[in-house]
């Protein structure tokens, strides 16, 4: 796998994690009729969101660190 593909897949993966966390795992949006509107559906959901953000940024570092097809850095 080229470093480009890896980096792009990390970026996409990161955004996927963010979307997953924000829309499906975080506290639901809407008029709060109960405590479930404040607590994330999965307790570590914000951590997953942050992991997604980190993944997106680390993609740039990974891209820079990995050698390209010619072996240079």
């Amino acid at each position: 796998m080229t470093r480009g593909k890896l980096a792009v897949s990390m970026v996409l993966g990161g955004f996927f994690l963010q979307a997953l966390s924000y829309f499906f795992l975080a506290a639901p949006l809407g008029i709060p009729t109960g405590v479930e509107y404040s607590n994330p559906r999965l307790p570590f959901a914000p951590a997953i969101f942050i992991a997604g953000v980190m993944l997106v940024f680390i993609a740039a570092i990974v891209y820079e660190l990995l050698p390209d097809r010619d072996g240079g850095e």
Partner: peptide, 24 residues
């Protein structure tokens, strides 16, 4: 002790949470 508690929503480790009786 908001019913729509922004602090509870963003805690990455679930340390901040809203109880059934409403206390955050």
């Amino acid at each position: 002790h908001c019913d729509n508690a922004p602090c509870a929503k963003v805690c990455p480790v679930g340390a901040r949470y809203k109880r059934e009786d409403g206390i955050v």
